[in-house]
Design a protein around this nucleic acid. Structure first.
Length: 276
DNA sequence: CACCAGGCAAGCC
DNA sequence: GGCTTGCATGGT
């Protein structure tokens, strides 16, 4: 068990905000299946308490996962200057963070997410992990980590269909083929600009602007993206009284929020979907 | 039953 | 180029 200063982190709010698919409540805290370990985490007023199936480098990994070293106060102050609506929303979203999750896991998970709901996305990822991921025993329970690349490379479209992926199976196959053919694909994404990374990701059959944005936001820490889904469209349209079609929303958010578009949209998503 | 979910590609014009 | 339509599945 380790103890970490939690600063202003709102743990529950962040974990259940829809960016993480592998979290559940347990006793007075939460179980999170991270990419290489399972953790039990709970919060008190000043501290996070964390137990893990793998204690190696734990403090550093938790601080990075919850993005605790980023200066949100400064970013939020900048965003709050844009207009009174976002200022009020940021105030309500105090303690919200963008999690730093594993790139490969986000790459696959957000392809699964399209035209799908969070509960069903979680179920599919759970089944995928149970069938092809590493088994971990932690605090007398059994968990399964998200599968390694090499395990998923073996899969056929039929096997994916068995998990309930529907038409997304062929998208996963095409994404995995790209990774196999281009050994340093994800490393390359990490190096290039957000704009180029969006273009590169969107060359894959099954990845559009929304999925590419989520992969970059949650898997690569890029805050300057446009993860616009149905919730975001509704919320922005309502709060700002503008048209709810995709391009109106995208251009509007891009113009106002600039380099922190992804974070601002996330605040709006969180407000529209979770704070009602 | 219809409609929806962290959308997308393909097929029209 | 932009706009419309079909899509797998499970929940409400």
């Amino acid at each position: 068990m380790i103890k970490i200063l939690k600063k202003d982190l709102d743990l529950e709010s962040v974990l259940f905000s829809g960016q993480c698919f592998r979290v559940s409540k347990k006793d007075d805290g939460f179980i999170v299946i991270m990419h290489d370990r399972v953790i039990f985490i709970k919060e008190e007023i000043k501290y996070l308490f964390v137990e893990s199936s793998n204690e190696n480098n734990l403090e550093k990994i938790i601080i990075n996962f919850f993005d605790l070293n980023r200066d949100y106060e400064s970013i939020n102050n900048d965003l709050a200057k844009k207009d009174l609506i976002i200022k009020d929303i940021i105030c309500k979203c105090k303690g919200f963070k963008i999690l730093n999750q594993n790139s490969f896991e986000m790459f696959i998970s957000y392809i699964i997410s399209q035209n799908n709901n969070i509960k069903r996305i979680s179920n599919i990822i759970e089944k995928l992990s149970k069938n092809y991921g590493k088994k971990v025993i932690f605090k007398n329970n059994t968990y399964y980590l998200f599968p390694e690349k090499k395990e998923l490379y073996k899969l056929s479209e039929e096997k994916l269909n068995d998990l309930g992926l529907g038409y997304r199976s062929k998208y996963i196959i095409s994404a995995l083929n790209t990774l196999q053919n281009e050994k340093y694909y994800l490393e390359e994404i990490k190096k290039i600009s957000t704009k180029d990374a969006l273009i590169k990701l969107m060359k894959i059959n099954g990845i559009g602007l929304k999925v590419a944005s989520c992969i970059l936001l949650f898997g690569f820490g890029r805050l300057d993206v446009y993860p616009i889904d149905t919730w975001v469209k509704q919320t922005i349209s309502k709060f700002y009284n503008i048209k709810s079609d995709y391009n109106s929303i995208k251009n509007f958010t891009k113009n106002i929020f600039g380099d922190y578009c992804g974070l601002a949209i996330q605040y709006l998503y969180h407000t529209g979907r979770n704070l009602k």
